[in-house]
């Protein structure tokens, strides 16, 4: 269990005179909760998602992003200094290791790397990094990759990582079934030539495998036909129901919220959360647009 706390977060484009995009975002997402983040194009939703994940294109100019772990998955009582993590101090892969997942609006296409190879590498990297983060200071020297060659150097050391090939095959197969994905995906190159919908399915698959504490899903529903929307929604619900993942779902449409019911709905306007409410707020936005929110905010301002 964990909570992602965003307080008064401000960020700009990381170049001289870069545009300020986030102007004081406050938001809290806890395990098991589903949040929907809505708002007009250009209001800063994707930027918020990327700043949480540590994208180098943005510079944080104020505020904080912290991840509080309850440590319930650890056997022993967790020391306080390992409970609270200032994410802004960490590399993107360290944030991933602690349990932050970003589902991209536009996932990258990587040629030549099969899905199965990538996913297993990512899972093992995450597990290894996690171990390092939690054992900081204990300094245990692992002679992993130089451990020598059991047979021939031509074949290399059998460095499989924590999750071996066979074990991973099983995990992958199981998760792909939930998402109704064809087995063939496993041997395709990462997102290369995937349709828009396939890429989105793949983002949810990755989340399912990496088992994050908090998943930020950026327009996971755009470009999906109704069948795939259901598959993807099943996947997101499974994240929450089976792993207790907290979800921050960025979307323009009520449509997906019929399948993935939000506990909270937030509206972003001009780089700030302008309004928050329950599921009914999304329906209102769907019917009436954002203008009334804007009016409400600027009237009180």
């Amino acid at each position: 269990m964990a909570t992602l706390k965003i307080e008064n977060l401000q960020a700009k484009v990381a170049e001289d005179g870069g545009e300020t995009i986030l102007r004081g975002v406050d938001l809290e997402v806890a395990s098991n909760d589903i949040h929907a983040l809505m708002g007009p194009n250009g209001s800063g939703k994707s930027t918020l998602a990327k700043v949480i994940a540590g994208h180098p294109a943005y510079e944080v100019t104020g505020g904080s992003v912290t991840l509080e772990l309850e440590g319930d998955e650890f056997d022993e009582e967790m020391p306080d200094d390992l409970r609270e993590w200032d994410l802004l101090d960490l590399e993107p892969n360290e944030r991933a290791a602690l349990g932050i997942f970003l589902g991209f609006q536009y996932p990258a296409e990587i040629e030549g790397i099969t899905m199965v190879n990538f996913l297993r590498t990512a899972l093992n990297a995450k597990l290894e990094e996690r171990e390092e983060l939690f054992e900081e200071g204990e300094e245990e020297e692992e002679d992993d990759e130089d451990a020598g060659y059991e047979t021939s150097p031509m074949e290399g050391p059998a460095d499989e990582g924590e999750v071996g090939v066979a074990e991973f095959q099983e995990i992958l197969q199981e998760k792909m079934e939930v998402l109704d994905m064809d087995e063939k995906f496993a041997s395709r190159y990462l997102n290369a030539g995937f349709s828009g919908g396939e890429k989105k399915q793949n983002e949810v698959l990755q989340a399912a495998i990496l088992e994050p504490e908090i998943a930020v899903l950026d327009e996971i529903d755009s470009g999906l036909d109704i069948d795939r929307l259901q598959d993807v929604s099943n996947g997101i619900n499974a994240l929450r129901d089976e792993q207790g993942t907290g979800i921050l779902q960025i979307t323009h449409y009520q449509r997906i919220l019929d399948y993935v019911e939000p506990d909270y709905v937030h509206v972003m306007l001009d780089g700030k959360i302008a309004k928050s409410g329950g599921a009914e707020l999304a329906e209102q936005l769907e019917d009436d647009g954002y203008d009334w929110v804007r009016e409400e905010v600027y009237e009180t301002a």
């Binding site: 994940a53 540590g54 892969n93 991933a96 990258a108 590498t121 990512a122 990297a125 990094e129 990496l210």
Partner: peptide, 15 residues
Amino acid sequence: GDEDVFYLQSRGLDD
């Protein structure tokens, strides 16, 4: 591609 590198980093791979 910086975006490609970030994508993989966000999944747990270091730079």
